[in-house]
Design a protein around this nucleic acid. Structure first.
Length: 262
DNA sequence: ATGCCGTCGCACCGACGA
């Protein structure tokens, strides 16, 4: 199984790069964030022509998430919205079952803006709701663990290793301790950070600011994560960051994160 | 203290992003 998460920063603007990626990497599942599209404009036809189906939660000009899967696998039992999320209808969470057994959630965690803001408080609340949801999804009614993936833009760099200059990121969003603790609570509800499972000490960024040549200067952060249930974590064979997709024509400011398991 | 860059829309600026 090859599963990818990618914040595309507008699916309309990025569709050529997305189709290029599907052709080059042939993922089984692609979790998208910041699709920034109206539901009626979601490119179901273009994806179908490439051999994919999608469960999308599209909210118009902001946010928007989707779970895309190879047509043979299919998506079923899709649900939009995170139970208990602080602001409803922001299109930040969508779940679907892929291939009949794998539950996949694509998530776009709120930015948080400033530490002393209502948006920051809502970001922490969103993580709380995520942790509760993971607790609901991780086992079946008999307590048997289920295969589960929560992938997306967490808008938090989990550790100083995931930030180009930790000293420049004191007491700001994406690195503050309450955010990191809130993200850890999601993981502690029953998941593992797939990239860190296979690359415990490696620096690997998934986002670089468009401005001031940050990409070419190596100034990035690892804020896109694929969180997997323990049994899937044991089967991981490769977790890689496709940083070349930050180059070329009209790139997103995020790159795809690929996870594979046997 | 602000813009840098990119995207969107009741659009030629402002909001938002991280």
């Amino acid at each position: 199984m090859r599963l990818v998460t990618w914040n595309v920063n507008s699916l309309r603007a990025r569709l050529p790069r997305v189709l290029e990626f599907l052709a080059e990497h042939a993922p089984d599942v692609l979790c998208l964030q910041e699709t920034k599209t109206d539901p009626s404009a979601f490119p179901h036809d273009e994806l179908a022509a490439a051999g994919y189906v999608a469960a999308d939660h599209s909210g118009g000009r902001w946010a928007g998430v989707a779970v895309v899967a190879r047509s043979e696998l299919g998506v079923s039992d899709a649900t939009s919205g995170l139970p208990g999320e602080p602001v409803e209808d922001e299109a930040r969470w969508v779940e679907a079952t892929v291939g009949g057994t794998l539950r996949v959630a694509s998530v776009y965690v709120p930015n948080g803006r400033e530490l002393a803001s209502e948006w920051y408080a809502q970001k922490l609340d969103f993580f709380d709701a995520m942790a509760k949801r993971v607790g609901q999804l991780r086992d079946d009614a008999d307590g048997t663990p289920l295969p589960l993936v929560v992938a997306g833009d967490m808008n938090v760099a989990p550790a100083d290793l995931d930030v180009y200059d930790p000293a420049a990121f004191l007491d700001v969003t994406h690195t503050s301790e309450p955010e990191r603790a809130a993200l850890r609570a999601v993981v502690d509800a029953g998941l593992l950070d797939a990239y860190r499972v296979l690359h415990p000490d490696e620096v690997g960024y998934t986002w670089w600011d468009y401005r001031q040549g940050h990409f070419h200067r190596g100034l990035g952060m690892r804020i896109d994560l694929t969180l997997v249930s323990p049994e899937l974590a044991q089967r991981l064979t490769r977790v890689g960051i496709e940083r070349d997709y930050r180059k070329g024509s009209k790139p997103s400011d995020h790159v795809p994160l690929v996870a594979e398991w046997a």
